[in-house]
Design a protein around this nucleic acid. Structure first.
Length: 221
DNA sequence: CTCCCGTTGT
DNA sequence: ACAACGGGAG
């Protein structure tokens, strides 16, 4: 057990600023899965339009998408970028999930280890997408590590520059516990912090965690 | 390391 | 016009 005061400190500073966020904008579990694929290397505003298009056509569900031809789906999700890849991946994952579990409800009854093995073998589902599905669609107690997490943890000095994802997750579980709602809230707050302050060119002036951030204290502006 | 891409902000 | 932005596969 490696004790890391800074991570606890960052959590409470973030909670202070953002409060409890009930996050991942989606109406259904299917929609979360669809969103995790569409938002790969893409900002959320681009994804929203796709979701809107899918809803308008009444095909915003895994069962509907599973019977689509990627060729006809591609133009509908165009605004998310990489639409040819994502179109194939989306039809593929919809097929595989509905085939195996029928519904997301059924799927969420399975233990995490089994779900991990299952998800990890799907093309187009990498670490972050898998963890996002586990956490936000299936309500499992999993911490999602994304680009913002890495940047914020490394700048603050919570982790080193290239700490592996598993180590980051371990650090979070050991110091903050593994309550699902808390883990989802932490990830959500880190996303907000990343968008608001911890950008490539950081805006430290109003940053809620600057008091414990190595980047601000030493190298910072 | 390269390819896959549209949207938003400057 | 052009830079910033953001995951995964091969």
């Amino acid at each position: 057990m490696q004790d890391n005061w800074k991570i606890r400190s960052v959590y409470s500073l973030l909670l202070n600023r953002y409060g409890f966020l009930n996050w991942w904008p989606a109406e259904t579990k299917d929609e979360v899965v669809i969103g995790t694929i569409l938002t790969q290397n893409t900002s959320w505003s681009n994804v929203e339009k796709c979701i809107k298009n899918l809803k308008k056509k009444n095909i915003c569900s895994l069962s509907a998408i599973s019977s689509l031809d990627p060729k006809e789906l591609a133009p509908i999700i165009r605004s998310s970028g990489f639409y040819n890849q994502k179109s194939k991946r989306l039809v593929d994952i919809s097929h595989i999930i509905t085939e195996r579990y029928s519904t997301m409800e059924k799927m969420s009854e399975q233990p995490v280890d089994e779900l991990e093995l299952f998800l990890k073998n799907i093309k187009g589902v990498g670490r972050e997408t898998m963890d996002s599905i586990l956490s936000y669609a299936l309500q499992k107690p999993v911490f999602v590590v994304d680009k913002y997490t890495m940047r914020i943890f490394s700048r603050t000095g919570i982790t080193g520059d290239s700490t592996p994802i598993d180590a980051i997750k371990g650090l979070v579980y050991e110091n903050l516990g593994n309550d699902g709602d808390m883990l989802r809230n932490l990830h959500a707050m880190l996303v907000y912090l990343g968008k608001d302050h911890c950008k490539t060119k950081p805006l430290c002036a109003e940053c809620p965690v600057k008091s414990v951030c190595n980047y601000f204290i030493t190298a910072g502006p």
